[in-house]
Structure formats: C-alpha cells, structure tokens
Amino acid sequence: MNLFSEAYDGMLVVHVDEPRLDAAIAIRFKEQMREVTVQPAPRVILDMSKIEFLDSSGLGAVVAVMKSLAPHRQLELCGLTGNVDKVFRLTRMDTVFRIHPDLDTALNSGRKYA
C-alpha cells in the first residue's frame, strides 16, 4: 500500500500511489490513512488520480476515513478517474464528499479560505 502525504498551508494532501483501491487493500488503506493524518490540518485532500479501479470495499474505506476525521477535519477528494467517478455517482456518494477535478483546483479552492 503506497500512500504519501504532503503538507500545504492548512492542508494535508495524501497521494494514493496504487492502481486499485479494492477489497484486497481496503483495511490497510484505512490503517495507513489513520497514520498519515496524525499531523494536524483542517483539510485533508485525497489525491485519487492514480486509482483506476475502486470497488465497494474501497468506497467504504474512504467513507470510514471521512468519518474518522469528522467533525473537526474535512476529507476532500480530487482526481477521480472514469471508473472511480462512476462508483461515486452510482452510489450517490458524490453528494456527500467535496470532490475537485484535480489537485490544482483543490489547492486553489483552499486559497479562498486562507
């Protein structure tokens, strides 16, 4: 499970460097997210641009991470590829996440609040 994080002012960006976020790595994803989000930042942005395939276990893991950060910290998503975006839309979970088309947009949207 390859996750790495970078701090931008007020934001923690977590890159998922895996082609799949599925049942095989969902638990490890949750564990590693807990570790990398130890450092404080009100906004956590999950860069999903490398993920080509997401199943319901992967989706559930992303939801679990969002819930573990709430209420004081928000999980936002960016860079959803076609198949990943489809899962969010079919399940309507796109309505409960703040989703940015790409990382630049996510970072710029942060500046408004800075």
Binding site: G60, A61, V63, A64, M66, K67, L90, T91, R92
Partner: peptide, 21 residues
C-alpha cells in the same frame, strides 16, 4: 434500494451495484 448517502454508510453498496448494473 441504495444505501442512503447521508447516513455515511461504509458498506451495503456491493449488492446495490450488482443489482443496478
């Protein structure tokens, strides 16, 4: 019969997706 997004479900999507697709 999809899990309600507002309840922030962590599961229950699997059979919904199968039935839907």
């Amino acid at each position: 019969s999809r899990p309600s997004p507002e309840s922030l479900p962590e599961g229950g999507f699997g059979w919904f997706l199968i039935r839907d697709l």
